[in-house]
Amino acid sequence: MATNSLPREEMPGPPLLEDFDDESQARALVEDYLDHLAANLIGRVASEDRARLKDEAAFHLERLTAHYASQGRPQRAAAEMAIQQYGDPSQIADQITLSLYEGGRASRLFKFFGRANVTAFAIVGFAQFVYVLLLQLRVFAPSGAAYDLPLDPGDMRVLLPWPLPLPQHPLDFFVLYVYPILAPFLIGWLAGRWIPVRPARAVTGAMLVAIIYSFVVGVSVLPQTAGLLLAIFQLAFWLPISAAMAEASLAMNLRRKLRRSYGERHVA
């Protein structure tokens, strides 16, 4: 009888693991584990390094399985114990990525603080510096004296056509609205591209330092209310947005690398 004439409920489904012998089940479990390990490394580690890691893990798991099997356990149970002893694949993949990212003869700064933290602090620190500078310009030059531009509004409109907001809106518009709203997105996007593991955590740490900096510097060089509001705004908006954007940027970056890696290997 042709398969496609069977009713749906009688269609043969995919074979279950239990349909195979003990040794095949053990092999299938180990292969599945290795696939999970490699999958967590795609886009974060070069394909040659990924193949090496997989081969090393395969050998190690084979030896561990043999060790537990020599204690009288069935092959499948031995493989399960070996996998458990080896560790969680996503955690190991994170650690491997970190060790390749952080390892080597790094500078003292990287060694002490960690490369991810230094990178996040550099990104956040620069955005913070620009923001505090803009705020000081706004507060201490309210008449706009610091913003004198070489062109009159008519000439500027020729260079910057509608719907760009200049020159109708003064630069205060950028200081108060555009920059502080866009900055956390930019911070998160850069962090996700430059930090391969848990960028949200690195960005959160750097942002907490920046918030304290904002509060202290804000109340000392800005009007007190402005300094406090700046710190609160960064806590309530910059911190969650930059952390979320960092993880989203990392995911998009990995996906892009995966597509590019697949495309390079399968070009006709």
Binding site: E56, G87, D88, I92, Q95
Partner: peptide, 10 residues
């Protein structure tokens, strides 16, 4: 966990 040894080796 034996897998945590490999990041150290690398």
């Amino acid at each position: 966990s034996h897998g945590t040894l490999y990041p150290v080796l690398y």
